[in-house]
Design a protein around this nucleic acid. Structure first.
Lengths: 219, 219
DNA sequence: ACAAAAGTGTTGCTGTTACACCCATGG
DNA sequence: CCATGGGTGTAACAGCAACACTTTTGT
């Protein structure tokens, strides 16, 4: 290979969702070689008439069937040996979505949701990319940087649900009474008046974020 | 221009420093057309045998004469019309440095430090890039995200110095007594035993960050 | 002595932590 | 009535916010 000032760039989109108190990622199974049968982050090579943001949106639309979502840029990976044959730069994006609204509710043999701590066998350097991007994201979630919690819970939720997700990301337990007090006493959440329908146990109260109070709030 | 999957990428390095309570950026004056006489962010086109990180380090070394510094990646800009002739993607990095240690202490006609709210006439889209990157950075500084304050104050400082910088970035005043108490009572800083040499007024006590206490500390 | 800038103490408020029992629902 | 999971109160402590006068230095 010869030294050149032209580079190949791909956009990789980490589609994430808060589901059952876990942080989950949507992955696709590769149908052809190399890495046939391995799972990969959905992506697309960038042409010089498209922006990275447009590219990410296109991947999002194709994968979820949704038009609009919370999509933002994260790291760009430029290691020389990411792929075998050619140096390809990966610009990674995160999309935060509501799993229940997408066309990909059900896991199939071709695509599925995985907990970010229970990843399947991944192709290329995608496991490393997920780990690096998620490490950054965990910091953002646990401090509510960029009001990111709101984006993971766009619709109604119970406080135990939120707490489970938060404990999962933080990886340590929190006292339920204190968690409840924090959100309710500071009016960070609003009671919707509805209760969760559940299989067992007392149904939880459904809350919604009080956007005004949550904006800029450091958790 | 024809659609292609090859792209030109440049690395832009925003070299920053906390100086006299202000956030300053190092810029270079462009010597040839286009934008001759305008100021620009130092940068370099990426070849396909170099990583973005290596590229940023090279720019840093060339500009400051320093070997190592705190350098990290920020946004990648891929607008189609950034430059006139060809679509060039800009991957921006921040370098945080100690202005007094660099070879660029003095402003010359070719390069100079500017307060980030008193920028000169900038070439290309560099003003927009600075503004977007600095907006993100301000959030990080004011929350001490990634322990960034330590990086801006690697050596001794007085509390009023730190406070001035902090007020400048936050763009609002803070009570001096409360600021002092916060850092001293929580042992976030250590008294070095020295005093600042100053032109007028009572000399300030020189402190150093207590790294262990500052790590992960949210300000 | 004056100007300039740094150092400092108290009080009330707000949020955090630690801790254990009762309540609503389905089976 | 039992299992499951949700809801709740209190007290001690820590950090934050609001407030003005004194000390050290150079001129």
């Amino acid at each position: 290979m010869e030294k050149s000032y032209y580079n190949v760039i791909e956009t990789l989109l980490l589609i994430l969702s808060a589901d059952e108190g876990k942080l989950k990622i949507y992955l696709e199974k590769k149908k052809n070689e190399p890495y046939k049968g391995y799972w990969i982050i959905p992506g697309s090579t960038l042409d010089n008439e498209t922006t990275l943001e447009q590219n990410a949106e296109n991947i999002y639309k194709k994968a979820t069937g949704l038009d609009k979502g919370t999509i933002f840029q994260t790291r760009t990976f430029s290691n020389l040996n990411r792929l075998k044959n050619e140096r390809v730069i990966a610009s990674s994006f995160i999309a935060i979505t509501d799993k229940t609204l997408t066309d990909i509710k059900q896991n199939t043999s071709d695509n599925a949701w995985f907990q970010i701590d229970e990843l399947p066998k991944l192709g290329f350097d995608h496991e490393q990319i997920i780990n690096e991007v998620i490490t950054e994201l965990r910091k953002k979630i646990t401090t509510n940087y960029d009001d990111i919690l709101i984006k993971f819970f766009p619709s109604d939720f119970t406080l135990p649900e939120l707490q489970n997700f938060y404990e999962y990301v933080l990886n340590k337990p929190i006292d339920r009474r204190n968690f409840h007090k924090k959100f309710v006493n500071q009016d960070l959440v609003v009671d919707t008046g509805f209760k969760q329908a559940k299989a067992s146990g007392r149904p939880g109260t459904l809350y919604r974020f009080n956007i005004d109070k949550m904006k800029g709030k450091r958790i």
